[in-house]
């Protein structure tokens, strides 16, 4: 019979206690570090959202300044030039070639003035600021509708859920999607739908155009700029965009914006 010393038992128990302590320590420390890392990640995400929101706010301010300059300075100067030309035209002999030249120039000035007003209006939708999103979108629909394409707006009841802070963002997104559909899809009908689904607002822009390859567009820096801009805007409010598109059939773009997120929405103000 062999009998190892008692110290062996004590050493083994001490070793086991140490092992258990190490396991607990590793589990606790790792949990704490993971939690810390998650917090840092959330802070970075929040910071990114704030930067993005600041960028969009700056973009809107810059558009407003540009629109004001166009309207107040260039628009006024063009109007004065037109009036002066009117006077000059009247002083010229009715059948002289100079009068015909002046008339032509006045027409050109008229067109330029209209374009300046249109650009100014596109830069800052004054209807949005004065009368809200519904009126602005109705105006957008009216402007986009022509002989080739018919644009419809549906879901008027859902506009009451849209927070004022989200209005500019939603307007810009819809504007981008409608412009894309009119310019590139060759669609004859475009429908904009607003509806509430649980705790989120959904905006769907549907068209019966030729569709497109989303991967190809997203890889193309120039063409994918508008879509990336939509994604960036939505990332500020933790929204999502889904492109149900393919070449050869109409496209269906659905934008989802959470309604119960005032903290994020406040970033846009």
């Amino acid at each position: 019979m062999e009998t190892p010393p008692d110290s062996l038992l004590i050493a083994t128990i001490a070793m086991l206690i140490m092992a258990i302590f190490i396991v607990i320590f590793v589990a606790y420390y790792q949990h704490r570090q993971s939690h810390h890392q998650l917090t840092v990640k959330e802070m970075l995400e929040r910071h990114r959202q704030e930067l993005m929101a600041a960028m969009f706010r700056g973009q809107e301010a810059e558009r407003r300044r540009l629109a004001q300059d166009l309207h107040d300075d260039i628009g006024t100067m063009l109007s004065v030039a037109k009036m002066t030309l009117n006077q000059l035209e009247r002083s010229l002999d009715r059948y002289s070639p100079e009068r015909a030249q002046a008339y032509k120039t006045r027409q050109l000035l008229d067109d330029t003035l209209k374009n300046v007003r249109r650009i100014s209006r596109d830069l800052v939708p004054t209807t949005l600021e004065r009368f809200g999103l519904l009126a602005a979108l109705e105006e957008l629909v009216g402007n986009a509708t022509n002989d080739q394409v018919r644009v419809q707006l549906e879901g008027h009841d859902s506009f009451e859920f849209v927070a004022p802070s989200l209005e500019v963002m939603l307007y810009r997104i819809v504007q981008e999607l409608v412009t894309n559909a009119v310019r590139h899809s060759g669609a004859s009908q475009i429908v904009i739908q607003f509806f509430r689904h649980e705790d989120e607002l959904r905006v769907a822009v549907l068209d019966n155009g030729r569709g497109f390859d989303i991967d190809e567009v997203q890889q193309n820096r120039q063409r994918g700029l508008g879509l990336r801009s939509i994604e960036s805007r939505l990332s500020v409010v933790e929204g999502h965009v889904t492109f149900d598109v393919a070449p050869g059939r109409g496209s269906r773009v659905i934008v989802q914006v959470p309604l119960e997120n005032p903290k994020l929405a406040s970033l846009l103000i």
Partner: peptide
Amino acid sequence: AGSVFLSPFIHYTFVWNGTFKLPVM
């Protein structure tokens, strides 16, 4: 950890038909 201190002893105690008087271990 539970067997690291026991290991040095098993060579001296473990032969076939040998006994090891340390039930707790």
